[in-house]
Design a protein around this nucleic acid. Structure first.
Length: 431
RNA sequence: UCCGGAGUGGCUCAACGGUAGAGCGGGUGGCUGUUAACCACUAGGUUGUAGGUUCGAUUCCUAUCUCCGGAGCCA
């Protein structure tokens, strides 16, 4: 009886008889030989069926098996240097489990809308498969990085009573007889948590009802947000660059096969080593002016600006020390010049946009109150947040990294919607 | 919300205002090393919707819906 194995382990079974269980990816027929490209969710393997090696009944399956039919296939493993997997299976027997109906996704071009409508099937294709593998590795790397550095995972709530960022982009939910909002960020909760646990991170979905229709936006996306007591903006930036370097190198180390499937230029990823360039907002303005942009102090940097800056480097760029008026109320003012806040954005190379936003947080309750009043935020909703500054306030910092944008950069995908299994955008809630 | 682009067999796309075509997928047949295999034959269409101009509209006009790309905002 042949041993049932996962296809990814095939190299350990050279010349042995094994059984694989999975699905038909493609069939190439010839007269007395046919090739079945098989997938089981761990690897793609070419299986060779020779007329003289199998029964008439098995050989004739070439006419009845359809794309995505499920089967158990038994045969001998042999080397096949021309195959991506390096091995192929010489078939002895095929047990058909289910013959699939005509499969809508062909191995040819399809439009994005069609593929997204069929996301539940599209996930079976090679590119989504590779991206999901890499996403899982990056998520694991996120946890490992912080777990190995004395951080405690403290999850934040999804239902919140108020906004964390601006109030314009909240999803409203019915919460019994009241209103609740889906969280946009766990940061405010993390600020409370570090006073209990010193260094924490939260990792989960965030929801923003932004009516954005660009390749960098989802309404539901995942964010990992570390928060650290006694960290200033420089400690924050040091950690951010160490973190991003770690994520990229982990993907390179553990997802080489998947990056190959995606045809990713890995020399670009290999170059992602510390230190990353750091420029201030003022320096960014100077650079942009030199490049011909019409931009003045106080203007926020848009996507074209970010791209222009990013293309100057082959590494992520950190832009820090931003004009206060363009940034959130909780960011700490620069003690040397009140016009600025100690915030930082990290821009990924190759046009993948902002992957990190972070800052040193304002620890002075009076400054915070002043900002809350000036921005006309509902003070009573922030009382608990102000308590953090009433009882042993300390300098602290943190940042948030967008998972899909980071995965999109590592994979070299065109759009972040490919980097989440079930994308939610302004116009898409299905499947 | 604003600006631009696109809606044609299951899918991806053609078609000067004049008989709607091709490739893939499906079906049938052929081929012993194929790499999105190849070759031959075959079925498959109220051109997003509603109006209008015209002898005649896939093509021009108006409205509307959907999708895509971008802007703003952000991760």
């Amino acid at each position: 009886m042949a041993e049932y194995i996962l296809a990814k382990h095939i190299s350990k079974y050279l010349d042995k008889e094994i059984t694989l269980k999975g699905w038909v990816y493609n069939i190439r027929k010839s007269g007395k030989i046919w090739f079945l490209i098989f997938r089981d969710g761990t690897e793609f393997i070419q299986c060779v069926v020779l007329k003289n090696d199998v029964s008439e009944e098995i050989f004739e399956l070439k006419n009845t098996l359809t794309q995505e039919s499920s089967l158990a296939i038994t045969g001998t493993v042999q080397e096949a240097p021309r195959q991506e997997a390096g091995y192929e299976l010489l078939v002895k027997n095929i047990e058909v489990i289910h013959v699939a109906e005509e499969y809508p996704i062909a191995l040819k071009d399809h439009g994005v809308d069609f593929l997204m409508d069929n996301r539940h099937l599209w996930l079976r294709s090679r590119l989504p498969y590779a991206i999901m593998k890499i996403r899982a590795e990056v998520e694991k790397a996120c946890r490992d990085f912080f777990d190995e550095r004395d951080f405690t995972l403290v999850d934040s709530p999804m239902f919140t009573p108020n906004a964390a960022e601006g109030s314009t982009t909240l999803f409203e939910a019915k919460y019994f007889d009241r209103k609740a909002y889906l969280t946009q960020s766990g940061q405010l909760y993390s600020e409370a948590a570090i006073m209990a646990l010193n260094r924490t991170y939260c990792f989960g979905p965030c929801f923003r009802a932004e009516k954005s229709k660009t390749r960098r936006h989802l309404t539901e996306f995942w964010m990992i947000e570390p928060e650290m007591a006694f960290f200033d903006i420089f400690d924050d930036m040091d950690l951010a660059e160490e973190f991003v370097e770690y994520l990229v190198q982990r993907a390179l180390k553990n997802c080489r096969r998947e990056l190959e499937i995606l045809d990713r230029d890995i020399t670009k990823l290999k170059a992602i080593q510390r230190p990353f360039p750091r420029i201030t907002y003022d320096e960014a303005l100077e650079l942009l002016t030199k490049k011909g942009f019409d931009i003045k102090f106080g203007d926020d940097l848009g996507a074209p600006h970010e791209t222009a800056i990013a293309e100057e480097y082959n590494k992520p760029v950190m832009i820090w020390r931003w004009p206060a008026e363009s940034k959130a109320f909780y960011m700490k003012r620069d003690p040397e010049d009140e016009k600025y806040v100690l915030g930082v954005d990290m821009i990924a190379p190759e046009g993948h946009g902002e992957i990190i936003g972070g800052s040193q947080r304002e620890e002075d309750i009076n400054v915070l109150l002043e900002r809350i009043e000036k921005e006309d935020l509902p003070k009573e909703d922030f009382e608990w947040f102000l308590d953090i500054r009433r009882y042993g306030s300390v300098p602290h910092s943190g940042f948030g990294l967008g998972l899909e944008r980071t995965v999109g950069w590592i994979c070299g995908t065109h759009h972040v919607r490919e980097c989440i299994p079930w994308p939610r955008t302004m116009g898409r809630l299905k499947p």
